[in-house]
Nucleic acid binder design. Structure first.
Length: 154
DNA sequence: GCCAACGTTGGC
DNA sequence: GCCAACGTTGGC
């Protein structure tokens, strides 16, 4: 899962109440589908800083709540308001994410790209998607780079 | 249903 | 700040 480093970094998540936040504001159907249908409580995710200096994976987080309607879509004052999302039949969904472990070594985009096992990550193919799939092999390898050992993927 | 225009994202 | 990529919108 990606967040702009300036906007909401891994450290922001780790210092948030209960180290948890709702992943609101995603307005892309593919990312929506993943949060609504595919991501389940207990799943681990890599936390990626986009627009960082450098961009890269800062740590591991965990889904602590299955997909549920994104209430910011119904709030006229919210920048993610969407008049087309009907509360009775919501267009947009979000999950709750909790910080698990900050990497000792930040894994930069360059580290990912230059690693033989990680060159095909969906992150690179779908650069602009805010949520992209990671294979168990990729997940383990990124944790290995970040922490020197593997964190068990689901 | 096509496709050009537009807005946004993200790496640099 | 620039620019390429790409999802979305809207006219036809």
């Amino acid at each position: 899962m990606k967040s702009e480093a300036e906007c909401f970094s891994y450290d922001d998540l780790a210092t948030a109440l209960d180290k948890t936040t709702c992943w609101d504001g995603v307005r892309n159907f593919e990312a929506r589908n993943m949060m609504r249908d595919l991501m389940k409580k207990g799943d681990l995710v890599l936390y990626y800083h986009s627009k960082g200096n450098p961009p890269g994976v800062a740590g591991v987080a965990k889904i602590v709540r299955d997909g549920y309607p994104d209430s910011t879509a119904f709030d006229k004052k919210d920048r993610h308001f969407d008049a087309k999302s009907d509360p009775a039949k919501p267009t947009w969904y979000m999950v709750d994410v909790k910080a698990v472990k900050k990497f000792k070594n930040f894994v930069s985009i360059n580290d990912l790209r230059s690693h033989p096992l990680l060159q095909n990550m969906a992150l690179f193919k779908r650069n602009r998607l805010s949520v992209t799939a990671v294979t168990p092999e990729e997940f383990d390898e990124v944790c290995n780079l970040g922490d020197g050992h593997t964190t068990k993927a689901k």
